[in-house]
Design a protein around this nucleic acid. Structure first.
Length: 207
DNA sequence: TAAAAGATCCCCT
DNA sequence: GGGGATCTTTTAT
């Protein structure tokens, strides 16, 4: 997918549909690696998903949904194919794709992207405050990618399955070397290998 | 009612 | 390698 193809909106015909998301997060997560996150809201911004983690409803000790629906995690228990956005540590936003049938509480955390289009805008957003940011650091973490894209609480609940605004599409690319590990930054459920990433990719947050 | 932890990032030593 | 920023949710008195 080239920059020209992005502005031509050629990706719009390949937006992932609700059926893709209506499965357990552990099934959806590895398949989301390699897909494109697109924000068509002015200058198109796009990034290839290179790192994700699955969080699986009330049986997962590390999931926000582990104790049932609350005001914060309501979107997680809503229909699949929507975006769950939450504030972590009081200052960073994290974005997840909601999976499985409504009421389940499954979601896939987007942990890292490889910028494909709109990197100038990303650099400006990530560098707000006067610091310079390397290309490989633009989206190399869950809160970095939301800052680069300008995703915040106002995007909680956004529909990912229609073109325009935020969506995820399949441009046919798939990783040659998909790797798996335990999830990062959690203290419970560390035995579960529910993180998937492209081994060797410079934008992944950890090897 | 209070305290601590949390799916993080950045700057300092 | 360690701590601070900053606030919501959860768990403990």
């Amino acid at each position: 997918m080239t920059a020209q193809q992005l502005t031509d909106r050629r990706w719009a015909a390949r937006v992932l549909q609700p059926e893709f998301y209506e499965r357990p997060a552990t099934e959806v997560a590895p398949e989301l690696v390699g897909k494109l996150l697109v924000l068509d809201d002015g200058p198109v911004r796009a990034g290839r998903i290179v790192e994700v983690e699955a969080y699986c409803g009330e049986g997962d000790p590390a999931a926000h949904s582990r104790s049932g629906p609350t005001a914060r995690n309501a979107t997680m228990f809503g229909p699949a194919g929507h975006l769950y956005v939450y504030l972590i540590y009081g200052l960073h936003w994290c974005a997840n794709a909601v999976c499985a049938p409504a009421g389940t509480g499954d979601a896939v955390l987007l942990r890292a992207l490889e910028p494909v289009g709109g990197s100038e805008v990303m650099t400006a957003r990530r560098g707000a405050g006067g610091r310079s940011v390397e290309f490989s650091e633009l989206c190399s973490g869950p809160a970095k990618l939301t800052q680069a894209f300008g995703i915040d609480g106002s995007h909680d609940g956004a529909d990912l399955t229609t073109a325009g605004g935020l969506s995820i599409c399949d441009d046919g690319w798939s990783p040659a070397n998909l790797a798996q590990s335990s999830r990062i930054g959690i203290s419970r459920g560390t035995d579960l290998l529910w993180r998937w990433y492209v081994a060797g990719n410079a934008h992944v947050s950890a090897p």
